[in-house]
Amino acid sequence: MADPLMVDRGLLTISGLDCFYGEVQVLYGLDLVLNKGEVLCLFGRNGAGKTTTLKAIMGLVPAAAGSITLDGKELTGLAAHDVPKAGVAYVPQGRRLFADMTVAENIDIGLMTRRKGKQTRENVLDLFPLLRERLKQRSGTLSGGEQQMLAMARALCLEPQVLLLDEPTEGLMPSMIAKIRETVAKLRELGVSTILVEQRVDAVLSVADRVSFIENGRNRETVDVEELRADPSAVRRYVGVG
């Protein structure tokens, strides 16, 4: 592997990251580079460490060793609530909306994070016009797909430099999956740099620029998506399906 100092460092760079849950080590010296404006997909089996990687970026799981830098700024030393303020937005697995609150209140919490105002709110609602009709509704009563849209809208209220999406299509019906995928593609056109955790091969191939194969807490290899389309054998090697 090339010396990371010699190549373009990218927008978000993870190097040598070790993470633990209590005594159990989950990430072993994980390296990852997200370039500006791309969709990087983390692909791998359950328990490989994909979600942990995202949580580590957010500071929700402490880094025992290694570094995570955003635009050259070190994130590992920050308190968990300061990471989003630096410009990283998170759409957690299972959406994790504040289900007791209305759609509008969930969006307000997103806006408060980096003190964004009405303009941001309008832009985000233009992206998800469906939510505009539901502002007063309790978010827990939305359908699964609508909840996923709200989770993404809430994150985009930060106007983030980097967006972390953890299995956004999990548990949705096919028409909704297509809609979410369209949204990810639209966000890429808008220049949002995204790390996407996915388990479906077809989803990966259609929206990703590059794919990192995560296995046993390590990044085994990162390939361009064209390469993968031409030769999908890597998918079978790491996930055993495809």
Binding site: M58, P84, P92, F98, D100, E105, I109
Partner: peptide, 24 residues
């Protein structure tokens, strides 16, 4: 109020609240 919103968010889901800049 905004303070109430922050309190309710923390009450509902501490981890996600942190991911939205709330100093729990």
């Amino acid at each position: 109020t905004r303070i109430g919103l922050i309190m309710r968010a923390t009450q509902y889901d501490r981890e996600t609240a942190q991911a939205f800049g709330i100093p729990v």
